[in-house]
Amino acid sequence: MKFAATAASAAILLTACASTEQSASSSNVYDPLEGWNRGVYAFNETVDKAALEPIARGYRMFTPGLFREGVRNFLSNLNQPVVFANTVLQGNPNASGDTVGRFLINSTVGVAGIFDVASTLGVAKHKEDFGQTLGVWGVDEGAYLMLPLLGPSNVRDAFGMGADRAFDPLTWTEFEDNDLDDQIRLGRVVVGAISTREQLIESIDTLREQPEPYIALRRNYTSQRRAAVRNGKIEEDPYKDLPDFDDFGGYDDESGSVPEQETE
């Protein structure tokens, strides 16, 4: 994690020095560090295929679905204080109320968060982080970043990840046994990585079959994050950036009067 955090900081510094020119088009992704990012992506793929993917597949094979669901619920419940802090910062009292309710119900009746009783009772689940909060506040996403071991991100979201750690009570909890602190944090990271990778088995298989997985992931991550900042609402004028199909007849025209399509 330290390595990833250092790399992310270095990337942020590098990006800060790079041009800040960005396209307003929603289909565009600003990726001035593409060469570096592609290298990190290749590194992540190597690590994933050698270690994380086989472990995740083994985890799926040797554990029952209910157990994995319990692990997901437990990890999600641990993250609720971070979600709560971000709903407050985003000025969304309904989501804050839901999140407090979920945390109290699932931490008690749900046996330390293993059972998602709150969802059964109809209490909505929210997924907020500080990257989204910054987005709601109008902060641009900045350059696209591929983080070592952590995957796709951007300057804003990478910064957000650091802030979310500060919102996390477990970051500040001190146990008498200093080793226990580290063991709990490490355990959470390792179990979280395996659980997340297990959930992504099909998605990553599909991604790897794409003609250009790097491009597909970059577009998918960016548009998903933009939708998350809008809290799942479709943007106000979703058709404004659609490329014009009407010029198509021109592709047969030898004069080549058709403007080149630029979607990236």
Binding site: I215, R219, R230, P238, L242, Q261, T263
Partner: peptide
């Protein structure tokens, strides 16, 4: 989830 994925546009990018 609020993210409009246009199949031909995604295909074109790749």
């Amino acid at each position: 989830d609020g993210n409009l994925i246009w199949l031909a546009i995604e295909q074109q990018a790749q």
